[in-house]
Each structure stands twice: as structure tokens, then as C-alpha cells.
Nucleic acid binder design. Structure first.
Lengths: 211, 211
DNA sequence: GTCTATACTCGGATAGAC
DNA sequence: GTCTATCCGAGTATAGAC
């Protein structure tokens, strides 16, 4: 059984009561919107603070460091995206997962700034001490756990090809998503959805006799 | 037919004769080795220059900027890696591609510093003006062109599942590779090869009747 | 809680001697 | 071709007033 629902996305505010969490949340939403709209251009704390309506020091008052701030923005994105798509966070069946996922992917294509932020923090995660590391580790584990369950179930019902380890399949899905985003940065017009679709097709159990 | 062999990796030295290209090449090999061995820790020009046995200004004499330097390091890696694996750069058949590719992937797992450099420059490529953009665009197009040809041939000979667009399959392979590397940064012990293997299995035409 | 002001560091680039 | 020296900008973090 998976960890309790929303384990990752709901909690993670450490300074919780110490700093007005409502405002903090508000700030994060605003910052998220800014990066989504304007893109990530070596975004500095100062730039974000202005867009958010605070001074640099004012913004940093809510976060331990720049790095933490940016990770929290990413976490907020997940929160927002998955709020509208419970099907992806906790998919009932494969088709639900696929449909919900494709929607998110299509949405991501609209916000290259966030994709860049994601990739950049992914690189930062190479440092075990960087706040990004823990975030990505938890996020990845969480997604794979949920997805692999769904895939295993689909496999049991003959919907997914046999002989594929569901955990590996989940990892593959994760890899394709992340990799597709890297390609998107280079080719903004890339259709990521069709890539994901292709993987899903490959995962499907063949309905008819072999070619 | 693909572009002439080695189109990408051999040329791309702009200041060619202007600056001693032999030395430049030597520098790049050394810098590559340093990042491979010591990892990428927010590597600065200064750090690299010392490891290479030059002053910061001395090193920069061979490159237009830090950004160009780092992209060239990455290009050098491709050069080196593919020199030992002609099979991947220009694969004769699917099994050759698979085998050669797996070797490279296994090698990459040994040099997380280079993987981080790759990912970081991948993010930089979001900026059309960054030297990284042209590199990634060309590299991606080149690899996909070669691979899709091999996959198409394998498909024609019944080795690969029908109904999959070879170009998409090639893109998928690229996405999985890049995505696996991002996962590697977070989980240094990840077995990337098994991920790639899984994709190849999915691509294979089923040999027996449907489950 | 928020601001202004500042301190400090880092890193890339450039000038100019040798 | 390589070095030393310097400059300059950017950007985070912090101190302290309000």
C-alpha cells in the first residue's frame, strides 16, 4: 500500500507557525505564476520579489535561502497541477492515469519557464546537501509507487504487456516525462503528448496476433 | 540518408587556426577528465584552469566565454565516447545499437559529474542565445536521424513492433536516456542500463502469441 | 513583517606586461 | 601564448530601523 495520500505535497513547511504560512503560500502562488508567465531567465530573488510585491529581504524573510525558495515553487506547482488531477496522483486505472497525465503534459508545454526550473533544480539535486535533492527523491519515489501499483493492476487484468516489471515501467514513464521536457527546452514546439502516448502504446498488451 | 558521418562531432571549432587547436583539444581532454573524476561542483573557470595547469585568463584565451568552454567539454565527451563506439553513432542494426548504447550508458553511470554537466547545459539550452542551444539541437537531430533509420530497418525485418513510428521511437530512446540520467543524479546507484533494456524489450516485436 | 542599506563573496571578463 | 592584476557586476545574505 502507498503512503498516505498527499504525503508529499501537503506538508513540508518547516517553519510553519513561525512564519505566516498563509502569506507564504500566497507568495509561492504568485512566484509560480510569474515564472510560468515570464519564463525563467536566471531568475534572481530580487526579480521575483519585485514581481511579488516585496523587497528582496522581505521575500527572503519567508524562506531559508534562495535554493529553498525555488524548490518550494516547484513543490507548489505539483500541488496546483495535481489538485486538478487527482487521477494522476492516485490513479484508479491505467486509462485514467494516461488521460490525466496527458493533460498535465500538454499543460507543461505551455509553461517552458517551469520546465526549465524543473530541469535546473534536477541538476542541483546532484548535490546531496541541496534542498532540491530531498524534494526530487521524495517526489520520484512517490510517483513511482503510485504508478507502479496502477500498472501492476492493469497488468493483472491483461491490459498491460506481461513480462514488464511495473516498477520499471513506472520509472520509464518518469524518465520519458523528464526527458521529453529536456527536449522541449530545445524545441519549444515539440509535441510531448505524442511521446507519452507512444510509450503507453508500447506498454499495452498486443490485442491481436504478432505481426 | 543521414548527414555525412561525424558531421557534428568533428567540426565546430570556430577559431580553428586562430588559436592553436591542438592545445585547445588537449585542454578539453584534460578538463573533461577533471569533471569526470572530481565531479561538477558549480565548477568555475578558475577551478578548471588550475586543474588544467593554466591561469584563468590563460584558459579563457582559448574560448569565447565560460559557456562556450563548457559546451565544448560536452562535445568532447561525445567525441570520446563515440570514438570507441562507432556502432552507436552509426549503428548497423538494432542489436548493435542496443549493445553499444548499453555500454555507454553503463559508462555514464560512472561519471555523475558529466551527467550533471549535461543536465545543466540542457537547461541552459532553453535560452536560444546560449551556445548550448545549438549544440543540443544538432546533437539531438543527429542522433535521432541515425537511430530512426536503424529502427526503421529493424521494423522492416520484423524485429521491431509494427505501428510505431521509428522517429518517435528514436525520440523515446533519447528521452529515456536523458530522463534516466536525471534520475541518476538523485539516485547514484540507479541501474540505468536496465531501464534502457526495458525500452528495447517494449520495442521488440512479440515473438509469441498475445498473453 | 517589511523595508533600506550594506556587506561580502564570487566569478567572469579584460588590459597590459612579459 | 600565458601570466598578473584589476575591474566590475550580480546576487545573496544580513543588520538594523520602522
Amino acid at each position: 500500500m502507498p503512503g498516505s495520500r498527499d504525503s508529499l505535497w501537503v506538508m513540508a513547511r518547516r517553519g510553519s507557525y513561525a512564519k505566516g504560512i498563509a502569506k507564504r503560500e500566497e507568495i509561492l502562488r504568485a512566484a509560480l505564476a510569474v515564472v510560468a508567465r515570464e519564463g525563467y531567465h536566471g531568475a534572481s530573488v530580487k526579480e521575483l520579489s519585485e514581481a511579488v510585491g516585496l523587497s528582496q529581504a522581505g521575500l527572503l524573510h519567508y524562506f531559508d535561502s534562495k535554493d529553498e525558495l525555488f524548490v518550494e515553487i516547484l513543490r507548489t506547482r505539483d500541488e496546483v497541477d495535481l489538485a486538478g488531477h487527482t487521477d494522476v496522483a492516485d490513479p484508479a486505472d491505467l486509462d485514467t492515469l494516461r488521460a490525466g497525465y496527458l493533460e498535465i503534459v500538454r499543460h507543461n508545454a505551455q509553461v517552458p519557464g517551469l520546465v526549465e526550473l524543473f530541469t535546473r533544480l534536477g541538476a542541483d539535486a546532484a548535490d546531496p546537501a541541496h534542498p532540491s535533492r530531498a524534494f526530487f527523491a521524495a517526489r520520484g519515489a512517490d510517483l513511482r509507487e503510485r504508478w507502479s501499483e496502477t500498472i501492476a493492476a492493469a497488468q493483472a487484468s491483461g491490459q498491460v504487456r506481461t513480462g514488464v516489471d511495473p516498477v520499471l515501467a513506472a520509472r520509464l514513464l518518469q524518465a520519458v516525462s523528464d526527458g521529453a521536457q529536456m527536449q522541449l527546452l530545445v524545441e519549444p514546439d515539440l509535441d510531448m503528448a505524442v511521446l507519452i502516448e507512444t510509450l503507453f502504446e508500447l506498454l499495452q498488451a498486443p490485442a491481436d496476433a504478432p505481426a
